[in-house]
Computed example of a mutant assay.
Amino acid sequence: MKRRFQLLNHCLDNHRLTIGVFSLFLGMTTVALADYKPPSEPSHPEQPTIISGTRGGCSKNGQANLTTLAPQEHIGKTVSTHPTFAWFVPDAEALPMKFQLYQDDVNEHPQPIQNIELQTTPGIMTHSLSEDELGLSVGQRYLWQVVIMCEPNHPSSAIIAQAYIDIVQKSPDLKIALAAATNPVDRADIYADKGFWYNAFGEVVGSADDARHRELKLNLLTDLAKIEASGNSHYASQKSERIKQILEIERKARL
């Protein structure tokens, strides 16, 4: 009988050890996702970016607004000359849309770069500059906007959202950090930590829809909502509320 108890205790000890090792392994493989940190010396738009349209989009039945998924309180940066732009569409029905890109001008006369006609799809939409096209210039600032034509025969019915983007040089430190990254989430973490919003969000918004990508995408939007809420302008506060509405919709969609 004593021998039987010894064998039972030995088996239980081995089972506990296995569980402990497995738990330790899980703890080691769970990596905290980085927060988005704005640039240490952020640039600010000289004038507020346009936020138009009523809640619900063209149909006025939605729970959110047409919103650019990019900073407004400060100007978002990228080290890519072919960046990815993202925005949220509230309307369920397909509507004509335009993506427009302008090079910022000191004389306040933005120069048109792109004017692409699209069709809306509900939720988060993206547009990336093709690698076959001439890229954006390092050191330049651009204005981009999305326009939904609610009633094509009545231009005044259009709703518009826009944001700025700065194209900057990739530093040696950033190159070294990225060389060690093996997947989009790792790269997004690095970009977010170093203040490159467009790169960070672009890495996950169009990637495979798995748990880590979704988590980081929502984390980045949560960070952006907090940053906008901390701004002093009414426009930043309004942008924060819009992003919070989008977060609520995105989370419900995953239930």
Rank of each mutant, 00 (worst) to 15 (best):
G56T: 06
G57E: 08
G57Q: 09
S59R: 09
S59A: 09
K60F: 12
N61S: 06
G62Q: 10
G62F: 01
Q63G: 12
Q63D: 15
Q63P: 03
A64D: 06
N65Q: 14
N65H: 14
N65G: 05
N65D: 10
N65L: 11
L66K: 10
L66G: 12
L66Q: 06
T67N: 07
T67P: 07
T68L: 13
L69E: 10
A70F: 10
A70M: 01
Q72P: 00
Q72L: 15
Q72S: 13
Q72I: 05
E73V: 14
E73I: 15
E73M: 12
E73C: 04
I75P: 04
I75L: 07
G76H: 07
G76Y: 03
T78I: 02
T78V: 02
S80V: 00
S80P: 01
T81W: 08
T81Q: 14
H82T: 12
H82G: 03
P83M: 09
P83C: 02
T84W: 01
T84N: 08
F85Y: 11
F85A: 03
A86V: 13
A86K: 01
A86D: 06
A86F: 05
F88P: 03
F88E: 03
F88N: 03
F88K: 00
F88A: 05
P90T: 01
P90C: 08
D91R: 04
E93Y: 14
A94T: 15
L95I: 15
L95H: 05
P96R: 06
M97H: 06
F99G: 12
Q100F: 11
Q100N: 12
L101G: 00
Y102E: 02
Q103H: 04
Q103F: 05
D104V: 12
D105Q: 08
D105A: 11
V106I: 06
N107R: 15
E108Y: 11
E108H: 15
E108F: 13
H109Q: 10
H109R: 15
P110Q: 08
P110R: 09
P110D: 09
P110I: 09
Q111A: 10
P112I: 03
I113Q: 05
Q114L: 14
Q114Y: 08
Q114A: 11
Q114R: 15
Q114C: 02
N115P: 11
N115I: 02
N115Y: 09
I116T: 15
I116Y: 07
E117N: 15
E117D: 13
L118D: 03
Q119F: 05
Q119P: 02
T121L: 15
T121Y: 13
P122T: 14
G123P: 08
M125Q: 14
M125L: 13
M125Y: 04
T126W: 06
H127S: 02
S128I: 00
L129G: 03
L129C: 02
S130E: 14
S130L: 10
E131K: 07
D132S: 12
E133V: 04
E133G: 07
E133T: 09
L134H: 05
G135H: 07
L136F: 02
L136I: 10
L136V: 01
L136C: 04
L136D: 07
S137W: 06
V138T: 14
V138I: 15
V138A: 12
G139W: 01
G139F: 00
Q140V: 06
R141T: 10
R141F: 02
R141P: 00
